[in-house]
C-alpha cells in the first residue's frame, strides 16, 4: 500500500469521512475513493463510481461484480453509532462494551449529576434534553438508540425523535408493565402500531440479566442480533 494512500485513508477515518480503498488483485494497482474523487491507479480507468457507491451505501467490502471481479473494494464507513439516553449505572457498563464492539457511543442526559466525565471516562456526553440532543445527532439507519432513564419525561422525549428517524434499533429499559404504559402514552402522542413495533421493550435478549453489566450484555447482544442476524431462510414455496 502506497504511503500517501494510507495517510489519506487514516486522515479520512480521523475526520469520520466515508471512503473506500480499491485494489486490483491481479496487477497490484491501488487507489482511494474519497469525497467523490478517485485517487491513485483508478483515477483514469473505467467508471467504477456507481459500483463503489453501491458498496459504500450497503456497507459491504468485497470484489466488484464482473467484469471487474479482480478489483477489491474495502469500505471504510464511520463507526455505527449507539446513542444512549440516560447516564445511569447500566449506561456505564454499556458504553465501554459498545465501544469495544466498534460503536461510536454518545450518552445523553440533561442531569449533570449523572452525565459526568468521571462516571464516563472517554465517552462523548451530551448535557441536553433528549429530544434536542437526538435531533442534533440526526440518527440514521446506521444508528441504534437505547433509553435507560426510567423517567417518561426523558425517555418519551427521546422516543418521539427516534421513532421519526430511520435508526435500525430502538430499545427501552423497563418492565413489561412499564413498557405497556409507555406504548399507551406513545399511542396518545399519535404513533401507530408500526412505529411501536420498532421498539424492543423490555430491552435486551431474555438471558436473565440482573446486574447493570449483564443488562448491558443482553442489550448489546440484541443490537448485534438486529444488525447482523440473517432472517430465517424462507420455507419452500412449493405447494
Amino acid at each position: 500500500m502506497k504511503r500517501d494512500l494510507l495517510d489519506s485513508l487514516m486522515q479520512a477515518q480521523r475526520r469520520g469521512t466515508t471512503c473506500a480503498m480499491l485494489r486490483d488483485l491481479k496487477t497490484g494497482g491501488q487507489g482511494l475513493y474519497i469525497n467523490g474523487e478517485f485517487t491513485g491507479d483508478f483515477a483514469s480507468g473505467p467508471n467504477l463510481k456507481p459500483l463503489v457507491l453501491k458498496a459504500i451505501s450497503e456497507d459491504v467490502s468485497g470484489r466488484l461484480p464482473e467484469p471487474y471481479q479482480d478489483i477489491f473494494v474495502q469500505v471504510f464507513n464511520p463507526p455505527v453509532r449507539l446513542i444512549v439516553v440516560g447516564a445511569v449505572h447500566i449506561a456505564q457498563a454499556l458504553a465501554p462494551m459498545a465501544a469495544m464492539a466498534g460503536y461510536g457511543v454518545t450518552v445523553i442526559d440533561p442531569r449533570r449529576a449523572f452525565a459526568t466525565d468521571q462516571r464516563f471516562p472517554g465517552v462523548t456526553l451530551l448535557n441536553e434534553w433528549p429530544d434536542d440532543g437526538l435531533e442534533a445527532l440526526k440518527p440514521d439507519r446506521r444508528t441504534a438508540v437505547v433509553t435507560l432513564t426510567h423517567d417518561p419525561k426523558l425517555d418519551d422525549a427521546a422516543l418521539s425523535v427516534a421513532l421519526k428517524s430511520q435508526c435500525f434499533y430502538i430499545g427501552c429499559l423497563g418492565s413489561r408493565k412499564t413498557h405497556q404504559a409507555r406504548l399507551n402514552r406513545l399511542t396518545r402522542m399519535g404513533f401507530g402500531e408500526a412505529d411501536l413495533a420498532r421498539i424492543h421493550g423490555p430491552v435486551g435478549l431474555p438471558i436473565g440479566a440482573l446486574t447493570p453489566a449483564e443488562i448491558a450484555v443482553s442489550t448489546l447482544a440484541q443490537i448485534t442480533q438486529v444488525r447482523r442476524a440473517k432472517p430465517a431462510a424462507p420455507q419452500s414455496a412449493a405447494a
Partner: peptide
C-alpha cells in the same frame, strides 16, 4: 460480500502499521 467492519478496529490496525 460481508458487511464492512466497524472502522474502530481497522483504524487501530492501520495506525499501528503506519507507526
Amino acid at each position: 460480500m460481508t458487511e464492512a467492519l466497524a472502522s474502530a478496529a481497522t483504524e487501530d490496525i492501520l495506525r499501528e502499521a503506519a507507526a
